[in-house]
Protein backbone atom coordinates (compact mmCIF):
# COMPACT_ATOMS: atom_id res chain seq x y z
CA UNK A 1 0.00 0.00 0.00
CA UNK A 2 2.79 2.37 0.94
CA UNK A 3 4.61 1.37 -2.24
CA UNK A 4 1.53 2.04 -4.34
CA UNK A 5 1.05 5.49 -2.84
CA UNK A 6 4.73 6.22 -3.33
CA UNK A 7 4.53 5.10 -6.98
CA UNK A 8 1.49 7.24 -7.74
CA UNK A 9 3.02 10.34 -6.13
CA UNK A 10 6.31 9.74 -7.91
CA UNK A 11 4.49 9.35 -11.22
CA UNK A 12 2.63 12.64 -10.71
CA UNK A 13 5.85 14.46 -9.76
CA UNK A 14 7.75 13.09 -12.75
CA UNK A 15 4.95 13.96 -15.17
CA UNK A 16 4.68 17.46 -13.68
CA UNK A 17 8.37 18.11 -14.33
CA UNK A 18 8.22 16.49 -17.75
CA UNK A 19 5.36 18.71 -18.89
CA UNK A 20 7.17 21.78 -17.56
CA UNK A 21 10.24 20.76 -19.54
CA UNK A 22 8.42 19.98 -22.78
CA UNK A 23 4.94 20.81 -24.02
CA UNK A 24 1.50 19.19 -24.09
CA UNK A 25 2.16 17.51 -27.44
CA UNK A 26 0.72 13.97 -27.54
CA UNK A 27 3.99 12.32 -28.60
CA UNK A 28 5.97 13.99 -25.85
CA UNK A 29 3.40 13.14 -23.18
CA UNK A 30 3.45 9.48 -24.29
CA UNK A 31 7.24 9.39 -24.06
CA UNK A 32 6.98 10.93 -20.59
CA UNK A 33 4.50 8.32 -19.41
CA UNK A 34 6.71 5.45 -20.64
CA UNK A 35 9.83 6.96 -19.07
CA UNK A 36 8.00 7.57 -15.77
CA UNK A 37 6.90 3.92 -15.65
CA UNK A 38 10.45 2.71 -16.22
CA UNK A 39 11.73 4.98 -13.43
CA UNK A 40 8.99 3.77 -11.06
CA UNK A 41 9.88 0.12 -11.79
CA UNK A 42 13.50 0.92 -10.97
CA UNK A 43 12.62 2.56 -7.65
CA UNK A 44 10.24 -0.15 -6.37
CA UNK A 45 12.98 -2.00 -4.40
CA UNK A 46 13.98 1.25 -2.64
CA UNK A 47 12.45 2.86 0.42
CA UNK A 48 9.03 4.45 -0.34
CA UNK A 49 9.89 7.90 0.99
CA UNK A 50 7.09 9.83 -0.68
CA UNK A 51 4.43 7.79 1.12
CA UNK A 52 5.13 9.89 4.24
CA UNK A 53 3.11 12.68 2.65
CA UNK A 54 -0.43 12.73 3.95
CA UNK A 55 -3.15 13.28 1.38
CA UNK A 56 -6.15 15.05 2.84
CA UNK A 57 -7.64 18.50 2.21
CA UNK A 58 -6.07 19.97 5.34
CA UNK A 59 -2.55 18.85 4.45
CA UNK A 60 -2.87 20.13 0.88
CA UNK A 61 -4.02 23.51 2.21
CA UNK A 62 -1.10 23.53 4.65
CA UNK A 63 1.32 22.71 1.83
CA UNK A 64 0.22 25.84 0.00
CA UNK A 65 0.43 27.96 3.17
CA UNK A 66 3.83 26.45 3.94
CA UNK A 67 5.09 27.45 0.51
CA UNK A 68 4.27 31.09 1.16
CA UNK A 69 5.61 31.04 4.72
CA UNK A 70 8.80 29.55 3.35
CA UNK A 71 9.05 32.18 0.62
CA UNK A 72 8.58 34.97 3.16
CA UNK A 73 11.28 33.53 5.41
CA UNK A 74 13.61 33.07 2.45
CA UNK A 75 13.34 36.73 1.45
CA UNK A 76 13.67 37.86 5.09
CA UNK A 77 16.75 35.70 5.52
CA UNK A 78 18.42 37.06 2.41
CA UNK A 79 17.86 40.66 3.39
CA UNK A 80 19.04 39.90 6.92
CA UNK A 81 22.29 38.31 5.77
CA UNK A 82 22.82 41.02 3.14
CA UNK A 83 22.48 43.75 5.80
CA UNK A 84 24.94 41.93 8.05
CA UNK A 85 27.41 41.70 5.19
CA UNK A 86 27.34 45.38 4.26
CA UNK A 87 27.39 46.71 7.83
CA UNK A 88 31.00 47.79 8.45
CA UNK A 89 31.14 46.35 11.99
CA UNK A 90 30.01 42.89 10.81
CA UNK A 91 27.42 42.26 13.56
CA UNK A 92 27.64 38.49 13.96
CA UNK A 93 27.34 36.42 17.07
CA UNK A 94 27.76 32.87 15.83
CA UNK A 95 27.54 29.49 17.50
CA UNK A 96 26.32 25.94 17.00
CA UNK A 97 23.15 25.10 18.91
CA UNK A 98 21.25 21.87 19.33
CA UNK A 99 17.51 21.74 18.64
CA UNK A 100 14.97 18.98 18.95
CA UNK A 101 12.26 18.16 16.43
CA UNK A 102 8.92 16.46 16.92
CA UNK A 103 8.70 15.17 13.35
CA UNK A 104 8.86 11.40 12.94
CA UNK A 105 9.03 10.82 9.18
CA UNK A 106 12.45 10.93 7.45
CA UNK A 107 11.15 13.03 4.55
CA UNK A 108 9.63 15.55 6.95
CA UNK A 109 12.97 15.88 8.73
CA UNK A 110 14.81 16.43 5.47
CA UNK A 111 12.38 19.16 4.44
CA UNK A 112 12.70 20.75 7.87
CA UNK A 113 16.50 20.69 7.73
CA UNK A 114 16.50 22.23 4.27
CA UNK A 115 14.02 24.90 5.33
CA UNK A 116 16.18 25.76 8.35
CA UNK A 117 19.21 26.17 6.11
CA UNK A 118 17.36 28.62 3.88
CA UNK A 119 15.98 30.79 6.70
CA UNK A 120 17.46 33.70 8.62
CA UNK A 121 21.00 33.08 9.83
CA UNK A 122 20.71 29.34 10.38
CA UNK A 123 22.56 26.45 8.74
CA UNK A 124 21.98 22.79 9.54
CA UNK A 125 25.35 21.18 10.23
CA UNK A 126 24.40 17.71 11.41
CA UNK A 127 21.31 15.58 12.03
CA UNK A 128 21.31 12.85 14.62
CA UNK A 129 17.98 11.19 15.34
CA UNK A 130 15.60 13.85 16.54
CA UNK A 131 18.35 16.38 17.23
CA UNK A 132 19.63 18.89 14.72
CA UNK A 133 22.88 20.80 15.18
CA UNK A 134 22.45 24.24 13.73
CA UNK A 135 25.01 26.92 13.06
CA UNK A 136 23.32 30.16 14.04
CA UNK A 137 24.77 33.46 12.94
CA UNK A 138 23.22 35.38 15.84
CA UNK A 139 22.76 33.22 18.94
CA UNK A 140 19.99 34.61 21.12
CA UNK A 141 19.23 31.66 23.40
CA UNK A 142 21.68 29.01 24.47
CA UNK A 143 19.48 26.19 25.76
CA UNK A 144 17.71 23.59 23.61
CA UNK A 145 14.17 24.80 24.36
CA UNK A 146 14.81 28.44 23.52
CA UNK A 147 16.61 27.63 20.30
CA UNK A 148 13.92 25.14 19.29
CA UNK A 149 11.20 27.74 19.76
CA UNK A 150 12.90 30.41 17.74
CA UNK A 151 14.23 28.24 14.88
CA UNK A 152 12.09 25.15 14.41
CA UNK A 153 8.57 25.81 15.69
CA UNK A 154 7.60 28.20 12.92
CA UNK A 155 7.95 25.46 10.28
CA UNK A 156 7.18 22.47 12.44
CA UNK A 157 3.52 23.29 12.92
CA UNK A 158 2.97 23.11 9.17
CA UNK A 159 5.22 20.14 8.45
CA UNK A 160 3.60 18.16 11.25
CA UNK A 161 0.30 18.30 9.38
CA UNK A 162 1.84 17.57 5.98
CA UNK A 163 4.13 14.69 6.92
CA UNK A 164 3.10 13.58 10.42
Amino acid sequence: MRKLKHSILLFLTLMFFWILFTSLDIQEVTTGIIASFIIILMTIPLQPVLSDIKLNPKSILFTIIYFFVFLKELIKSNIDVAIRVITPKLPINPGIVKVKTKLKSPLGRVVLANSITLTPGTLTVEMEGEYFYIHWIDVTSKNIEGATTSIVSNFEKYLEVIFG
Partner: peptide, 24 residues
Amino acid sequence: LGALGIFRMPDVYNRMQAGTKATT
Protein backbone atom coordinates in the same frame (compact mmCIF):
# COMPACT_ATOMS: atom_id res chain seq x y z
CA LEU B 1 26.37 40.69 -1.70
CA GLY B 2 26.81 36.94 -1.34
CA ALA B 3 30.26 37.17 -2.85
CA LEU B 4 31.11 40.10 -0.60
CA GLY B 5 29.89 38.08 2.37
CA ILE B 6 32.18 35.19 1.49
CA PHE B 7 35.03 37.69 1.45
CA ARG B 8 34.18 39.43 4.71
CA MET B 9 33.02 36.69 7.06
CA PRO B 10 35.55 35.37 9.59
CA ASP B 11 35.22 31.58 9.34
CA VAL B 12 34.04 28.74 7.12
CA TYR B 13 30.58 28.42 8.66
CA ASN B 14 29.70 32.10 8.48
CA ARG B 15 30.96 32.21 4.93
CA MET B 16 28.70 29.33 4.11
CA GLN B 17 25.78 31.30 5.54
CA ALA B 18 26.44 34.15 3.13
CA GLY B 19 27.19 31.78 0.29
CA THR B 20 23.99 29.80 0.76
CA LYS B 21 21.39 32.43 1.44
CA ALA B 22 22.23 35.41 -0.63
CA THR B 23 22.98 33.24 -3.64
CA THR B 24 19.72 31.29 -3.38
